[in-house]
Amino acid sequence: MPNILKKMQTDLYDGDMDAVEAATRKAIDEGMSPKEILDDGLIMGMEAVGRDFKAGDLFIPEVLLCARAMHAGMEVLRPLLEESGVPPRGKLVIGTVAGDLHDIGKNLVSMMFQGAGFEVIDLGVDVSPEKFIEAVRAENADLLGMSALLTTTMPSMKATIDALIKAGLRDKVKVLIGGAPVTAKYAQDIGADSFASDAGAAVEAAQDLIV
């Protein structure tokens, strides 16, 4: 592997945003293909981060720094990837469901997805089923992520899935749900595709869903 990609992985692991961005530009200047930079530089670097986070060796703020650095590299690469016809990793529409104003957990999941190379459309909090449907259709999303912190707002997840079916979009998108009161059983009951108990697990579940 070229040294510049090895260094990119290390800089990414260290969460050095400027270094990753600079390395991405340099790799492009040296004539490397955007796909090679993405797969062997950024994604491989992020896989090491994910592995060590799962093993308990890294802390969330450190992973977020890495995700930020990954995102900076991706911003440079994205136009070139599109030009060369490399399919994107996946597009996620995400939000906290109607009636629920809790932002922090959902933001964490958003950042983790960005760090894993996904394109993320974050609709914010208190998102109605209609707004979710509209965004899924407009963005041609691969994944829909819904978050709820309150037991009382969970039913809005089912309402959104029902609305997806009604709009004829249910087959086009995989639905991923999470949040403190959400369980795998609940996901099954309301017809979601997957449930994740934390942000790292959400990204893993998404990768399994869209392979």
């Binding site: 932002d103 964490l108 108990s197």
Partner: peptide, 29 residues
């Protein structure tokens, strides 16, 4: 409502501001 998790202040200070467990388990179920 957005939280401090990804704020630079958190990134700069989490190691010294919080006691970090080694034997105590705080992982999710």
């Amino acid at each position: 409502g957005g939280g401090f998790l990804a704020d630079d202040h958190t990134l700069d200070n989490f190691r010294t501001s919080q006691w970090i467990p080694r034997m105590i388990d705080r992982s999710r179920y």
